[in-house]
């Protein structure tokens, strides 16, 4: 704790939701008939440094949104320490420096884009002229300058996401926290948002965002943490995480059935179908043996490519190490 350039510091952060029978506690589904405790976040540590784009990656229900909500003061943690800019996250001065986009943002649907941004600006105590100037800047940035006169109830999911992004950038925050910002956007919208996120970093801001869309994180993040079942499974820069230990060789094969390949390489390789071909992915050290076996089986090797492990591979590997974090309490 206490690093000079650390923007978010989290230590031993934990959240346990408790409930009775049919009560819904937290974002996780609870079966009937039991008194339950759900450990949504199981004691995590995180450090996000100034100027980073930090990707918080995990499958649905992994604990991403609960962690973010604890940082944003929406949920009280059961245990642990959180600091943003070295101070408590619930301090007014700290919050004034944060822009936040909730997951699937919901807005006052009786308002128009300019009205909702103006309302948010008032909560940041921005003077009227500054609010108007900033709104004039943001509406074109998120592509909503032509929808200013529509009420938000007429907006599509993607348009609501865009107004949410404008809301998150309204106060020119030093830290931008985005919960699943790319969901609900079409490919062009996603590209535009990725550009906006990178532009925030170029302005010296820190961006912390969660996603389960690996390609987006891989494209723009400086650092990644993978969370699953409330536990951080991996953390580091992409270069650190996708290191040379996990170099793989991709062998494209024709003339041997998938069943035979799966049977023969069950323990050492992944086998995938690509049309009439099969793709065999093996560790670098096993490639010579694999090629020999394929030739012995009468197969034709159509191509051999050495490749680095992808974030998807790392994610799958991390998720495979998962342990249950949901349990019963009492009897």
């Amino acid at each position: 704790m206490g690093e000079v350039d650390a923007v978010i510091e989290v230590e031993g952060l934990r959240k346990v939701f408790r409930g009775f029978k049919s009560l819904k506690v937290g974002p996780l589904p609870i079966p009937w008939g039991q008194r339950l405790r759900v450990e949504a976040v199981a004691g995590i540590d995180l450090t996000v440094r100034r100027g980073e784009i930090y990707g918080f990656l995990g499958p649905n229900g992994a604990g991403k949104t609960t962690t973010i909500k604890m940082l944003m003061g929406l949920i009280r943690p059961s245990a642990g320490v959180m600091r943003i800019f070295g101070g408590a996250p619930d301090e007014i001065e700290t919050r004034a420096r944060i822009g936040y986009l909730p997951e699937q943002p919901y807005f006052y649907d009786y308002l128009r884009p300019r009205e909702i941004l103006d309302f948010f600006g008032k909560l940041f105590l921005m003077p009227r002229a500054a609010r108007e100037a900033r709104i004039d800047e943001l509406l074109p940035l998120v592509g909503l300058e032509d929808s200013q006169n529509k009420k938000l109830r007429e907006f599509s999911k993607g348009m609501l996401q865009r107004i949410g992004i404008a809301g998150a950038l309204l106060n020119e925050p030093d830290l931008v926290v985005l919960d699943e910002p790319l969901s609900g956007l079409d490919p062009i919208g996603r590209k535009e948002l990725r550009d906006i996120i990178v532009a925030q970093r170029d302005l010296g801001r820190t961006v912390f965002f969660s996603s389960h869309i690996l390609s987006d994180i891989e494209m723009i993040c400086d650092k990644v943490a993978i969370i699953d079942h409330g536990v951080i499974r991996a953390v580091g820069t992409l270069a650190e995480l996708l290191d040379s230990e996990h170099l793989e060789v991709e062998i494209i094969v024709r003339g041997v059935s998938q069943e035979i390949l799966r049977d023969r390489f069950a323990s050492v390789a992944r086998v995938e179908r690509i049309g009439e071909y099969s793709r065999l992915i093996v560790g670098e050290g096993q490639s010579n043996d694999a090629l020999r076996v394929i030739l012995e089986l009468g197969g034709h090797v159509e191509g051999v490519v050495r490749r680095r492990e992808s974030l998807e591979d790392l994610f799958v590997r991390s998720a495979e190490r998962r342990g249950p974090a949901v349990g019963e309490e009492g009897a």
Binding site: I92, R95, A96, P102, Y106
Partner: peptide, 14 residues
């Protein structure tokens, strides 16, 4: 219920 509170509490408000 409509989750608009998610956009208010994280703002600099008590």
């Amino acid at each position: 219920d409509k989750k608009t509170i998610f956009t208010i509490i994280p703002k600099p408000v008590h």
